[in-house]
Simulated assay, not measured.
Amino acid sequence: MHRARAATMVPMTTTAAPATTPVVGFDQVSKSYGNVRAVDGLTLDLHPGETVALLGPNGAGKSTTLDLLLGLKHPDTGAVRVFGAGPREAIVGGRVGAMLQSGGLMDEVTVGELVKLACDLHPKPYKVSDVLARAGISQIADRKVNKLSGGQEQRVRFALATAGANDLIVLDEPTTGMDVSARQAFWATMREQADQGRTVLFATHYLEEADAIADRVLVLHRGRLLADGTAAEIKAKAGARRIAFDLEGPIDEAPLRALPFLTSIDVSGHTVRIQSSDADATVHALYGLGLYPRNLEVAGLGLEQAFVAITAAEEAKSQ
C-alpha cells in the first residue's frame, strides 16, 4: 500500500514551489504557554511533493506546530517561512489548504452551499462539482450540515481544504470518525495530490496510516524533533526487534525477564511477546534456559512499537 498510487480522479493543475525553496521552513522556532514549552527550538524543512506524517504523544506540540505554520499563532523565537514568505502571505495567496480539528462548520446551510462559498472565496478555485466529487460527498450536497455524521463532517472539511489549487495541504487528524472505506478513499486522493507536486503534511494518531502513506515521518516529543526519516528509518532508529513464541505448561516469568537485551516483555496465556535490542542473543539465551519455544517469530518493530520505544527512551532520559 505504501507506494501504490491511485488513478487520477479529477484533473488538477498546480505550480510547484521552486526546488531550491522549501515549501515550509522552521528555523529554531519556540513557543511557550506560561511555563509550558509547546515547541522547543524546532528546525525542519518540507519540500514539494512530500507526504509527511507528524507524530507525537498528546502534548508533544503537534497542534501548536500546525498553528504556527498556518499563522494562527506566532513564535516566541525563531522564524516560520511558507514558500519563502510569512504564513499569512502564502494563505492569502491561496497556496495553503488546511483541515483542522478545531472550529465548527456553518449550520443551517447545505453541504453544496458551504463548498460553493469556499470555492467563491478561493483565489484559484476549482469547480464545485469537482470538489464535491473529490471529497466523496456529491450524494449529500443537498443535506444540511447540521444533519451530517462525524465522518461526513470530516469529508466536508476536506472539501473546504481543497476548494482551490493549493500547493500545501495541512491536515490535523483528518480521518477521525471515518469508516475504513472512507479512509481508504481519502488517502487515495491525498496520494493523487502528492503525485501532482503538492506537499501534504498530516498529524495523526493512526500510526498504520503514517506507515502506509507517508514518504517521511517526523516524531515530536515535548516540542522537540526526536526523529525525522522514512518509516523504515524510524523503525531502525528504535534499535529493537520483536520476538514472539508459545510455551507449553505454566510459564515462569522470572527467568524470561532476566533474558539479555530485553527491553519489554508481555505474557498472555501461553504466548510470550518480547522486544530485544539484540534478538540473536536473546533467542540463544532463551534456548539456554532449557525451554522449547513453539511458533517462534522474530521481526522488526512496526512503526507503532518503534514510536513507543523512541518516546519512552526520551522520557527515561528526562527523569
Rank of each mutant, 00 (worst) to 15 (best):
Q275I: 06
L55I: 10
T263K: 15
A53T: 08
A232Q: 15
L121K: 10
A135P: 07
G112C: 10
L296H: 04
A203L: 04
M99Y: 07
A163W: 10
G150Y: 09
A182T: 10
Y206I: 00
D167A: 15
F158Q: 03
V92Q: 12
S264P: 08
T21N: 05
K62C: 00
V36C: 01
I234G: 01
Q275S: 09
L72T: 00
A279N: 14
E233C: 02
V145H: 08
N146K: 08
A141V: 06
P57A: 07
S318G: 10
Y292V: 13
K127W: 04
R216S: 12
D228L: 05
G49M: 13
L46E: 11
A299L: 06
E209N: 11
V267W: 02
R224T: 00
G78S: 06
D252A: 14
T175A: 11
L42S: 01
E192M: 02
V109R: 14
T282D: 12
A17K: 03
D172I: 04
R37Y: 02
F245R: 01
R95C: 06
I251E: 12
S102D: 14
K237F: 12
S276M: 06
I274F: 09
G288Q: 13
F202D: 04
I169T: 13
A299H: 15
L291P: 02
V272D: 10
R95F: 07
W187N: 03
G93R: 07
A240F: 08
N166I: 06
L262P: 13
Q196V: 01
L168Q: 12
V52Y: 10
S32Y: 00
A285Q: 13
T176L: 11
Q101N: 03
D120L: 12
L247Q: 11
L121N: 05
L55V: 12
L171E: 02
V52C: 08
T199R: 05
R3P: 09
S268A: 14
K235G: 02
S63K: 00
A210Q: 12
V219M: 06
V219N: 00
G249C: 13
A85L: 08
V111W: 05
G59F: 02
G34Q: 05
H47T: 09
R242E: 14
H74V: 12
W187R: 01
Q196L: 15
T15Q: 15
S149A: 03
T311G: 11
A309K: 09
G56I: 03
N58F: 03
N35D: 07
G223M: 02
D195M: 13
H270M: 07
D27A: 15
Q152G: 04
F158H: 03
E315G: 15
Y287K: 03
P260T: 08
A17N: 03
V267M: 10
A306R: 05
E192K: 10
Y292T: 15
L171K: 02
Y126F: 15
L148Q: 07
L220W: 01
A231N: 04
Y292K: 10
A141N: 04
I91N: 04
I274H: 01
H284W: 09
G229W: 11
G269E: 02
L262M: 03
K317W: 09
A279E: 02
